[in-house]
Every structure is written in C-alpha cells, then in structure tokens.
C-alpha cells in the first residue's frame, strides 16, 4: 500500500537537495565566508525547499484521477490516508536527505560527530514538515499552478521548526548538545502528527462540497 502511495520523486528531491547545497556552497566559497553557521543555514533551508518540491503531488494526482473519491468511500478513514501520505512523503524526501547530511557536511567543514548529531535533530524535526505540508497540499487541491501559492502558504509555517532546528544545530557545532531542545523538536513533530491529519481531512471534505 505504501508502495502505491509513493511516487517516483525520491531521487528528484534528493538530487535537488544536493545540487542546492553545492550551488550555494560554491556561491559562498567565492565570498570566502564559510563559517559553520552559514553551512547549517544552507542545510536547513535546502531541506525545507526540497521538502516543498513534492508536496503538490500528495493529493493532486489522486484528486484528478478519482482515487481520492475511492478513499472517501472506503472503510479507511481519510485521516489514516493522510497520515500514510505524510509518512510516505517523509520517507521519500526527508529520510534520504538525513542520510546524506553527514556525507555532504564533512566537505563543508563540520566534523563527523557533529554532523551525526545534526542529522539526529533532523530525524525528529522533519516529520513535522511533512505533516504541515499536507495542509498546504489540501488547501491548493484542484488549483492550477498552485505550486507557487503552496510555497507562499507553507514556507512561513516551516519557520518555527527551521529556527529551532538551526539554533540547536549551531549549538551542536559549538559542542553544546541540548537534549531538552532536541526533545522539544520531537514534541513539535508529535503535535503535528496529532493535529494536522484532522485539519487536513476537514479541508479536503470542505473542498469537495
């Protein structure tokens, strides 16, 4: 079932992430400013942006071909479907990125131990991004060219997580590891998991009628 929910965008968003990091990295290389803070900012922004890439496809295809109708009339509740969608989105776009972070941040001047900690922070915070994304996907359902609109909606809602995550990551590079902050990010993800499926399903139902 997960297989069918997933689509082929795994490689796409991962390569987008790598290309973005490389381009921005090279761009900053020219200015001679390659402090760890900048690198971390780049990593977080790149994660958020590549997360945005595949949001539109979450419900749009299902809405167009009628699979969403099938979900609505099936025994599975819409909330379950939305959770699965968000989970699939997380596995296909965020998880590969998390694995890539140690690989990509070492050449950018972050030690291996620190980069592992940063990917741990990402591991607990990115599910929140995926769950918030379902809101945007539902809001722009059926909208032609809703991609831009979606980015405008969704990027600001990513901000709290980005700010928090970035702060923790910067502390990590200063060798301060705050487990409480880590847990708070995890809590944010869990809150999103608990709340967004209901809001999203309400939006989809309103959209239908």
């Amino acid at each position: 079932m997960l297989f069918a929910l997933a689509n082929k965008s795994i490689l796409l968003s991962t390569s987008f992430f790598v290309i973005l990091i490389l381009t921005v990295g090279i761009g900053f290389g020219q200015t001679g400013d390659s402090s760890e803070k900048t690198v971390i900012a780049i990593i977080w922004i790149a994660t958020a942006l590549s997360s945005l890439l595949s949001i539109k496809e979450m419900f749009q295809n299902d809405f167009e071909d009628g699979t969403l109708d099938f979900y609505m009339l099936s025994a599975a509740t819409l909330e379950t479907i939305i959770c699965l969608k968000a989970f699939t989105h997380w596995i296909t776009t965020n998880l590969p990125i998390i694995f890539l972070i140690p690989l990509i941040s070492i050449p950018l001047g972050i030690t291996f131990y620190h980069s592992i900690l940063i990917s741990l922070v990402m591991l607990v915070s990115t599910p929140a991004l995926s769950f918030i994304s379902t809101l945007g996907a539902a809001l722009t359902l059926g909208e032609k060219g809703g991609n831009l609109l979606l980015s405008i909606f969704i990027l600001p809602t990513f901000l709290p997580i980005i700010i928090f995550g970035m702060k923790i990551s910067i502390l990590i590079t200063n060798s301060i590891y705050d487990i409480m902050a880590h847990l708070i990010l995890f809590a944010l993800s869990l809150i999103c998991l608990a709340i967004t499926p209901f809001i999203t399903s309400a939006i989809i139902k309103v959209h239908y009628s």
Partner: peptide, 29 residues
C-alpha cells in the same frame, strides 16, 4: 459512505503501476 461504490468517468488508476500492483493496492484498502 460505506455503502456506496462510485466509479466516475475518469478511471482511478495510477499509470506508473502494473495492473497487478493496482489491484493489490485496492485489495489492501
């Protein structure tokens, strides 16, 4: 609406799946 079966004029099929996978998917739900 657990009593209703609806089939619209656009077929709810995923073009990148095989027929078998599509049917497995429905069976799963």
């Amino acid at each position: 609406y657990e009593n209703f079966f609806y089939l619209g004029h656009n077929n709810p099929l995923k073009s990148y799946l095989t027929v078998k996978q599509q049917i497995d998917f429905w069976e799963g739900i």
